[in-house]
Amino acid sequence: MASEPFNPEILSHVEKFWQGRKPHSPIYAFLLSDIKLTHASKGLVRARLQLTNNHVNAHGGIHGSVSATLIDRVGGMAIAAWDNRMKTGVSTDIHISYVGSAKDGDEIEVEGVAKKVGGTLAFTTATISKVVDGEPGPIIATGSHTKFVKA
């Protein structure tokens, strides 16, 4: 899946999907208003976000809830990129492993991959990395996300 080439039509669809969702979710609007989609292909999306004070915990590192929100959101976008759907279901399970950190002012990249989208469930994975010299660098968190997608 990760070898799928960039597809501007899928990127346009995922951007439209995101713009339709953001106004209906105050948490997405607050935490992810500045996220920028950088890549989309079948079942794969990448986005970048510049961290601000709103994204960090009392110790100055990216807050775990921000990582969870990113994994949730990018999972939905990867499902939307699977087959250009506008409904991506509801979460049934999310798992996150926190392995690094980033701070206010750092840029991060999040990559979401839809591993399987079936008639009832969809399974996604995500990786959040710190951007170093314009490229994804150290991993901050990894996650898996299952969504109930049956209409």
Rank of each mutant, 00 (worst) to 15 (best):
F148I: 06
G76S: 15
M86S: 10
S144D: 15
H63F: 13
D34H: 10
F17T: 11
G20D: 09
L121Y: 15
H13D: 00
L51V: 12
G76H: 15
L32Q: 09
I94R: 01
S67R: 03
A80H: 06
T52L: 12
R46A: 12
S67M: 07
V45Y: 04
D106N: 03
K150N: 14
K22C: 07
S144A: 15
N53D: 13
D72M: 06
T52N: 06
I108W: 13
L44I: 15
G43M: 07
K103R: 12
P136N: 07
I96A: 12
G143T: 01
K22G: 04
H39P: 05
V56M: 12
I35R: 09
V45Q: 05
N7S: 04
E107D: 10
G134V: 07
V14S: 12
T142R: 15
A102V: 04
K16M: 15
I27H: 11
G100P: 00
V132Q: 13
A80M: 00
S12Y: 10
H63T: 05
S97I: 01
I140T: 05
N84F: 14
V132Y: 00
S67E: 00
Q50A: 11
H145P: 09
K87W: 10
A126Q: 14
L49C: 10
G105P: 08
K87I: 11
G60E: 12
Q19C: 04
G112N: 03
F6K: 09
T38K: 11
A80W: 04
K115S: 07
S33D: 11
I71R: 02
A2K: 14
T127R: 14
P8G: 09
G118T: 04
D93Y: 13
A102H: 05
A80Q: 07
V99I: 10
L51G: 09
M1P: 10
H145F: 01
E109Y: 08
R48K: 11
H145A: 10
K115V: 15
Q19Y: 05
K103E: 11
L37R: 08
H13I: 04
N53P: 08
S3H: 05
D133F: 02
V131Y: 08
K22H: 04
Q50P: 05
N57C: 09
I139F: 00
T127A: 00
P23C: 07
R73C: 12
A126T: 15
L49Q: 03
P5D: 01
P8W: 09
G64W: 02
I128P: 04
A29T: 08
T52R: 06
G118A: 11
